[in-house]
Amino acid sequence: MAIEVRLPTLLRSAAEGQSVVKTEGDTVGEVLRNLAAGYPGLEGQILTGDGSLHKFVNVYLDDDDVRYLDKLDTKVQEGSVISILPAVAGG
């Protein structure tokens, strides 16, 4: 199924300026791998060479950080939204 993936400003130039890209996949990892396959500029930006999540990237399924769900194996559902955001501090 096609899932809506929202990109942060700093990754949009690698995806032809788009802020939202519809991408196929049944798990978060699958969607992210397909996304990078479609836009080579994103290769290595969200997932590292060994296939794990980039340290400074937070990936949310709807509003939940997938690191605290089933990580990249987290299942997506029709209508789910994946958001990619850089890790920032507060305080």
Binding site: P8, T9, L10, L11, Q45, H54, K55, F56, V57, N58, S83, L85, P86, A87, V88, A89, G90, G91
Partner: peptide, 21 residues
Amino acid sequence: VEPPSGEMVDGLRNLDDGYIP
């Protein structure tokens, strides 16, 4: 709980500007 980092960090140039305490 965290706020969305989206528009607040338009000035970050690349992901390596990210920060984990």
